[in-house]
Amino acid sequence: MRYIIIGAGAIGGTIGGRLFESGRDVVLVARGAHYEALRDEGLRLALPGGALKLAVPVVDGPEALELRADDVLVVAVKTQDSVAALDAWAGRPVAGGGTAGERLPVVCAQNGVAGERLALRRFRRVYGMCVWLPASYLEPGSIEASCTPLTGILHIGRFPSGSDALAERIAADLKASGFDAPTPSDVMRWKYGKLLKNLANAVEATCGPLDGDDAAAARDLLARAVAEGEAVLDAAGIDRASEAEQTAVRGDRVRLQTLNGVARGGGSSWQSLTRGTGSIEADYLNGEIVLLGRTTGVDTPVNAVLQQTANAFAREGRRPGESTIPELTALVDSYGRR
Rank of each mutant, 00 (worst) to 15 (best):
R2G: 07
I6C: 11
G7L: 08
G7H: 00
G7I: 03
G9I: 00
I11C: 06
I11K: 02
G13L: 00
T14D: 08
F20T: 00
S22W: 00
S22N: 09
G23P: 07
V27L: 12
L28P: 00
R31Y: 03
H34S: 07
E36G: 12
E36Q: 13
R44G: 02
L45Y: 06
A51E: 08
A55I: 04
P57W: 03
V59F: 10
D60H: 12
G61R: 09
A69T: 04
D70C: 01
D71K: 02
V72Y: 03
V75A: 15
V75Q: 15
A76L: 09
Q80S: 15
L86M: 15
D87F: 15
W89L: 12
G91S: 11
A95L: 09
G96R: 00
G96P: 10
T99A: 08
G101C: 05
L104S: 06
V106W: 01
V106S: 13
V107D: 00
G112I: 04
G115S: 14
A119E: 13
L120P: 11
R122I: 02
G128M: 06
M129C: 14
V131G: 01
W132T: 13
L133W: 04
L133S: 09
L133I: 02
P134V: 05
A135N: 02
A135D: 03
L138V: 06
S142G: 03
S142D: 05
E144L: 15
E144V: 14
A145Q: 05
S146H: 14
S146I: 13
T151A: 14
G152K: 13
G157T: 10
F159C: 07
P160K: 00
P160W: 01
G162E: 02
G162W: 04
S163P: 14
K175R: 14
P182R: 01
T183G: 05
P184D: 08
M188K: 00
M188I: 10
R189C: 13
W190T: 05
L196W: 06
A202K: 11
T206G: 13
C207F: 04
D211Q: 08
R219P: 05
A231N: 05
V232L: 11
L233W: 07
A235Q: 09
G237T: 08
D239C: 04
Q246L: 15
V249W: 09
G251S: 01
R255N: 14
R255W: 13
L259N: 09
A263E: 14
G265A: 13
S269E: 12
L273S: 09
G276H: 04
T277W: 06
G278T: 04
Y284T: 10
I289T: 10
G297I: 05
G297W: 09
P301C: 10
N303T: 05
A304H: 06
A314M: 00
A314Y: 02
G317E: 03
P320V: 05
S323T: 03
I325M: 05
P326M: 08
A330I: 06
A330V: 11
D333G: 11
S334N: 11
Y335N: 04
G336L: 08
R337C: 07
R338V: 07
